[in-house]
């Protein structure tokens, strides 16, 4: 009987998982945590090629069983597959080993994280100018081959700008009569000055400086709004911990069982890791979390460190042939008749 081979396609480079996709990192942690003790072979491919997945989104787990190929796409499907593959709980609590309340919290919290922390992460990486220009945009050149790294960051940036509007983090003015959006901008002088024509070189300089100031002001206002949202989300997770463990002496720890981690927690820490990593030029999220929620920040730092240590580089391999997101492969994907 042919054995199963498991291949996880993620965003990353060589043996490093990219910060831009927390779901990829959560899946990598999950495989190393739960499959290594059972000696199940798997490989992690840092392909960065979204065309491999039917839903055009990574992470993607390809399970080959002889000629049969199964694709599990997205965090939920991968967790379900891994949970049924090895239903025993060692360090990871599979969905199959949870009681109904635990499973309910695990599933709904996963959805909650994807609907809340996801947008904060998008804001932090793509909409925050310093992080986007000094880190995220540059990183794509190491993830994708020439010339694919020109278009992709722009596409992701536009998509992120659209996405952050869901939680009211957009730099554009609020909608019709300010009814649909969040707090409307209060820069009344903005419109008058934007139409002003420079009458001399000196005046032009002054106008440019003013424009820069305004952009900075708008961005810091957005950052404050972002931190306000993050405050609510983290408080919610901490309240969840208190409700699940009313007798716990500590303020924050594992949600369900001591020393064991669930799928929703993996995803949560992965998002926190992406938002607070020290390579980011603007670490406002890290500063806020470490000052406002020290137990939460400390615990998530310890956990992410342990999870990162469990990653073994031998399991990683580079993309090959059709897996590479090259221009030729993209053309073949667009027009299959080229094959």
């Amino acid at each position: 009987m042919p054995s199963k081979t498991l291949e996880l396609h993620i965003w990353g480079r060589e043996s490093e998982v990219a910060l831009i996709d927390p779901e990829s990192r959560a899946c990598v942690w999950l495989l190393f945590l739960h499959l290594t003790p059972f000696n199940t072979q798997f490989s992690v491919i840092t392909s960065c090629n979204t065309n491999l997945a039917d839903t055009r989104k990574l992470p993607l787990l390809v399970v080959k069983n002889g000629n049969e190929i199964m694709k599990h796409e997205g965090f939920y499907s991968i967790v379900e597959f891994v949970s049924t593959l090895h239903p025993a709980d060692l360090k990871f609590i599979p969905n199959t080993r949870m009681n109904s309340t635990e499973l309910l919290v695990n599933l709904t919290l996963t959805k909650y994280i994807q609907d809340t922390f996801h947008y904060i992460n998008q804001y932090n990486l793509y909409v925050n100018t310093r992080n986007y220009e000094l880190y995220t945009r540059k990183m794509f050149s190491s993830l994708l081959p020439f010339p694919m790294y020109y278009n992709q960051p722009l596409k992701f940036h536009t998509h992120a700008c659209d996405q952050v509007k869901v939680v009211g983090l957009s730099s554009s003015l609020a909608g019709f009569l300010g009814l649909s959006g969040g707090v409307p901008d209060t820069d009344f002088d903005e419109e008058d000055e934007s139409n002003t024509v420079a009458i001399s070189a000196l005046h032009e300089k002054v106008l440019l400086a003013k424009d820069k100031d305004r952009t900075l002001l708008r961005e810091s206002r957005m950052t404050i709004r972002c931190l306000n949202l993050l405050d609510g989300y983290v408080s919610h997770v901490m309240a969840l911990f208190k409700e699940l463990n009313p007798d716990s002496p500590v303020e924050f720890a594992h949600l369900f069982r001591p020393a064991k981690i669930s799928a929703s927690e993996l995803l949560l820490y992965s998002y926190i890791y992406s938002m607070t990593h020290d390579v980011l030029p603007d670490r406002f999220v890290w500063k806020y979390l470490s000052e406002k929620f020290p137990p939460f920040a400390r615990f998530s730092a310890t956990i992410t460190e342990a999870l990162n240590e469990s990653i073994v580089k031998d399991h990683f391999r580079a993309a090959r042939d059709a897996e590479i997101p090259s221009l030729w492969n993209e053309l073949k994907f667009m027009a299959p008749s080229l094959k």
């Binding site: 919290v105 709904t108 959805k111 609907d115 309240a239 969840l240 409700e243 699940l244």
Partner: peptide, 14 residues
Amino acid sequence: TGAIDSTVNHFLDT
């Protein structure tokens, strides 16, 4: 109050 209820409510909203 009630963090679990609030998470379930969020799920129902989605």
